[in-house]
């Protein structure tokens, strides 16, 4: 009885979670312009995406922002995690509990506070401000992912390397880094996805001339019923799915300790 209730709720939950995405992909192939009913299969909406230069530019902006902020956020996060994992210093412990703050700060607030900072400092909004903002919200996550991996690591492995003739630097290079790699990759994946998908903080920190893909989608969704937005969104969902499958395969092969 309880079991059936649990299963029923789970099925409904999964439906509510996944059906919209399925419908989105389905309607991206729908010939009907209004999308009210099924008018047959078409690839028109995808073809139209190719004739939108603004999309190409937005995609490029999104990729530049995501790659740059991922590299920097992962580097900052890995360094900080290394410091925190090794030392039970009070400063490190305090820093760790402070990390929760950027994570629980609502995106709206983080976004406008950065907008205020840039405007007060007279920094022109654009690519650079978006990248700065994305690094800021990614760093706490990269620290936590790498730190989790580091904490799960046996510290006697590095000591073993020392007894085998490796000095600290070599032990770090030959033992710590390879074992930390799944965590670092996981952190990078997370940072990349957070950046690529972010709408709210980008909304406040992008200047009028710069648009990322989510900003363009938001504009399209609000203004028109142009079904090519379905095609674009469906492509994003598809991209995420592929990325996830690849990531799962990779992390599955290279030891446990991945991310969600």
């Amino acid at each position: 009885m309880t079991r059936r209730l649990v299963t029923t709720i789970a099925v409904l939950g999964y439906t509510a979670l996944l059906l919209p995405l399925l419908l989105l992909v389905l309607f991206s192939f729908n010939a009907s312009r209004s999308g009210a009913r099924w008018d047959g299969f078409t690839l028109d909406w995808y073809a139209r995406l190719l004739h939108r230069p603004d999309l190409t530019i937005a995609l490029r902006t999104s990729l530049i922002v995501a790659v740059t902020s991922t590299v920097i956020a992962t580097a900052l996060g890995t360094l900080a995690a290394l410091a925190m994992g090794r030392h039970r210093r009070r400063a490190a412990a305090a820093f760790e509990s402070l990390l929760v703050l950027p994570i629980v700060t609502p995106e709206v607030v983080a976004g406008i506070s950065l907008l205020i900072l840039f405007s007060a400092a007279g920094i022109h909004l654009g690519l650079v401000t978006i990248i700065i903002a994305h690094i800021t919200f990614s760093v706490p996550f990269t620290i936590m992912v790498v730190l989790a991996r580091l904490r799960g690591m046996d510290s006697s492995l590095e000591e073993a390397a020392l007894t085998l003739g490796a000095n600290e630097l070599t032990a770090f290079r030959r033992v710590t880094i390879p074992l930390l790699m799944p965590g670092i990759i996981g952190a990078a994946l997370l940072a990349f996805t957070l950046s690529f998908d972010d709408f709210v903080i980008t909304f406040f920190t992008a200047g009028p001339g710069t648009s990322t893909l989510p900003l363009v989608i938001y504009g399209m969704v609000r203004r028109t019923v142009e079904p090519s937005v379905n095609a674009l969104s469906a492509l994003l969902v598809l991209g995420t799915t592929l990325l996830l499958i690849v990531a799962h395969r990779w992390l599955g092969r290279h030891a446990s300790g991945g991310i969600a």
Binding site: D154, S156, L157, E159, A160, A161, L162, T163, L164, G165, A166, N167, R174, V175, P178, L179, A255
Partner: peptide, 27 residues
């Protein structure tokens, strides 16, 4: 430690999980 003429066997063995048996010994 690496400047001392010692070898060590750890409580949980501390074998490098990312290396094969031969690579562990060759380390």
């Amino acid at each position: 430690p690496y400047q001392r003429p010692i070898g060590m066997v750890f409580q949980n063995y501390a074998l490098f999980p990312h290396l094969s048996v031969a690579q562990n010994i060759a380390f």
